[in-house]
């Protein structure tokens, strides 16, 4: 029995320690709820802001980060996660919070540049030497080319890839909705699988050596280089691609309750400061600041892009048309 008593004491001790640590972490500060791959960006950005806030307001501020799949994150915020700010990779996610009344409906106009402090674009990543000579989107629908991309309906990167190809086809001479859908359908026929997420697609392409081309964010390419070596692949910039925006917003309901509005506003404003913009460039995200973009020109070659607003009338239209049940993606997979 003493054995059992010792065990119970041990368990109780562990539990007490656990709660003690948990209570300590729950201090006052800012909670930034963000998407998955923004981890590196905010790991660098938060110390910059803390230094800035210390210098201007004379206060020490604690910033907590939460990262996961963006729609999961947004649902958590809607269910009561106390996020002061949300920093997402797709407007449809912030739109959902606006619908729920947590975020202002005109959140996109509360900050410059559609509330997106930096952008990226979808590029084609091919094997070293580009053995299949893939230059543009229309090379991807050729027979015998294998395309790797994350699930077009269930993942953010997948949706951007899908819309990029759609927009390209639409902008070709004589292009219309029907030809675009046919184009995307042929492209998806060349996909041997739909990866579970962006990183999984990368692993499948780089490590398992499946496929001839990987559709990915430009910002991810550098990460691939760090992981697998620069000589292993080449980045191909298509003639036209989609501009991916990363909207940020203050969660009004939470900051009003916690009294952190001023801090939250400053935190997001600072993303547009020279230091914040430079941090974006260093994380391979295209800064909005034109001068900085020029400074990092070798990293960001010019590319013709269109936005979701321009071609699809915004995410609030693009999402239901293409990715809801029965949308254009589902139509491609109906048995005739």
């Amino acid at each position: 029995m003493p054995m059992l008593q010792k065990f119970i004491l041990f368990v109780a001790g562990v539990a007490a320690a656990w709660f003690a640590v948990g209570a300590q972490a729950d201090g006052n500060g800012l909670l930034n709820v963000s998407y998955d791959v923004a981890r590196d960006f905010y790991k660098d950005y938060n110390p910059l802001f803390q230094k800035h806030w210390q210098a201007t307001a004379g206060q020490k501020v604690e910033i907590r980060q939460s990262h996961a799949g963006s729609s999961k994150q947004v649902r958590a915020v809607a269910d009561g996660l106390d996020a002061d700010v949300v920093t997402m990779n797709q407007a449809s996610d912030v739109d959902f919070l606006a619908e729920k009344g947590l975020v202002a409906r005109d959140y996109a106009r509360r900050f410059p540049n559609n509330a997106s402090p930096y952008t990226s674009t979808m590029v084609l990543i091919v094997r070293k030497g580009n053995p299949k000579a893939l230059k543009d989107w229309n090379d991807l629908i050729k027979p015998g080319v294998q395309v790797i991309l994350p699930h077009p309906k269930n993942t953010g990167n997948g949706r951007y890839s899908y819309l990029a190809a759609w927009g390209y086809a639409l902008r070709q001479p004589g292009g219309n909705e029907r030809s675009a859908q046919e184009f995307v359908g042929r492209l998806l026929k060349n996909a041997p699988l739909f990866a579970a997420g962006g990183r999984d697609a990368t692993t499948t392409f780089m490590q398992r050596r499946i496929g001839d081309v990987l559709l990915s964010f430009e910002s991810e390419a550098e990460l691939i280089a760090r992981e697998f070596g620069k000589g292993e692949f080449e980045i191909v910039y298509p003639s036209l691609s989609i501009l991916t925006e990363f909207p940020v917003a203050i969660v009004d309901k939470v900051v009003d309750k916690k009294g952190t509005r001023k801090l939250a506003q400053a935190y997001l404003d600072y993303l547009w400061s020279p230091a914040g913009q430079e941090n974006a460039a260093e994380n391979y995200l295209r800064p909005r600041d034109a001068a900085l973009l020029k400074k990092y020109a070798s990293q960001f070659p010019p590319i013709r892009t269109f936005t979701v607003d321009e071609v699809f009338g915004g995410w609030s239209k693009a999402f239901p048309t293409h990715f809801k049940d029965g949308g254009t993606f589902d139509q491609l997979y109906q048995l005739k």
């Binding site: 959902f96 699988l193 579970a196």
Partner: peptide, 24 residues
């Protein structure tokens, strides 16, 4: 991670559930 997740071929029901959640 291993299924390939192709509609009608290797899509499991829990994936369809996640897909619904993605649409809120």
């Amino acid at each position: 991670f291993i299924a390939g997740n192709m509609p009608l071929i290797s899509e499991i029901t829990p994936l369809l559930i996640i897909s619904k959640l993605e649409q809120y």
